[in-house]
Design a protein around this nucleic acid. Structure first.
Lengths: 230, 230
DNA sequence: GCAAATTAATGATTTATTCAAG
DNA sequence: CTTGAATAAATCATTAATTTGC
């Protein structure tokens, strides 16, 4: 039914062609902003907006990441084994995650994520983002599931529908029972600091870099998106 | 004006009292996990609200994180002064950001954000997240503005409304005009790798690691939320 | 039995909303 | 009222299941 494969095919074709030029990363000294890689204001192409960056990935980390997207499965389905594309949780990992979820954890902070990641690392490759995403998705889908269920229940048991949902939404279900769910507050998150950097900055010719103190336990940073040019 | 402070106060009070005893995590098979700090399954209260890190700067990562959750600003709401609450972009910073935006940048990747942050750091305190959020918000609000405008235009010029929007949204406007909006593809982002460290702290003492090739330019990490217990 | 073709799950991103500081 | 910060909802894309033709 779905044309997923077509999509993929087209996708890959494109991928193959693109080249990427991530910016020549000149030294971050920022002497001149103009020199910033920044994809030249990201205007790379006047017209091509959406581009999906051929380069997409890594700069920072995972080299294998890149490799994967190219050919990997065009040929056969077998994967290179080393750096697959996306995280595939092992049963044990899932077990732990679900345990935590049932325990009441919903949105672990960076520290917690770190801890969990470490723990789960014992059972297979995993990164913090995986944990983060897992909780987001699980929470959302669990809620969604409940919603649907509740709706069904309502429609079958009672006849009065206090609220008409546009489609199937349920007002505000209560997620898990535990937790008093006090007032709904939003609070700051704990972002890692990008770099020691910046702050002082003072003048202009900063050498910067500086830090890189290897001792860093780990750097956290929310940064989310990627060059996408929407 | 607003009573925000009260909210915070109440919130904090609660925080002080709770202690949290997460369900005894009967470890399925993963022995060590139980020992994890993890804030005990996060059953504890969402930590301190907004704190604005008193001394943020370099410390690189989470040490302060921990500190924060404890007491930090339970006392008064007033902020220490050094670390104000939220980022307040200087005119120069905004100028640069808008320039980039007009240049076409919409969703800078982690590397770009880093670069920008460094650059803007010259004009005042700023962190990567600020840049990240700025683009998110600017993009969203710009679009929103356009939407509204487009809608108005439509309603005044033409009379036929192809689509009825629930409120005011426009189906799928094209953001900026230029751009061919080729196939909409989504690509991977560049997360920092969490582990790397892992090993050391690892509760079980697994050596693992392996990679950790120090070459990493910087560690990025999206982590978003925080303990919230919904 | 198996591999291509689908379909169902779910990992990863992006967009829309909401909250609250200034 | 503007807008930085944070979260939730909506989407997209890839992988595992499952089905189907041989």
């Amino acid at each position: 039914m779905r044309l997923h494969h077509f999509h993929v095919a087209a996708y890959l074709e494109k991928a193959a062609s693109t080249s990427s030029s991530p910016p020549s990363i000149s030294s971050p000294s920022l002497s001149s902003f103009a020199a910033l890689p920044l994809g030249a204001l990201q205007c790379l192409r006047p017209l091509a907006p959406k581009i999906s960056f051929p380069e997409k990935r890594k700069m920072v980390v995972l080299p294998e990441f890149a490799r994967v997207r190219n050919a990997s499965r065009l040929l056969t389905c077998t994967v290179p084994a080393s750096g697959t594309t996306r995280w595939n949780p092992s049963p044990d990992q899932i077990k732990v995650l679900e345990m935590l979820y049932r325990g009441g954890m919903r949105t672990p902070n960076s520290f917690q994520i770190e801890q969990i990641t470490e723990e789960l690392g014992k059972y297979g490759r995993i990164e913090g983002k995986n944990v983060f995403y897992w909780f987001q998705n699980h929470k959302a889908r669990e809620r969604q599931k409940q919603k649907r269920a509740a709706l069904l229940t309502l429609s079958t048991t009672t006849s009065s529908l206090p609220e008409a949902e546009t489609k199937d939404g349920l007002g505000k279900e209560e997620a898990s029972s535990s937790e008093d769910a006090s007032s709904r507050k939003r609070r700051c998150r704990a972002w890692g600091d990008v770099h020691g950097d910046v702050t002082t900055t003072a003048g202009a010719g900063a050498e910067v870099v500086a830090d890189c103190t290897d001792d860093v336990t780990l750097e956290l940073f929310p940064l989310s998106p990627q060059g996408k040019a929407n």
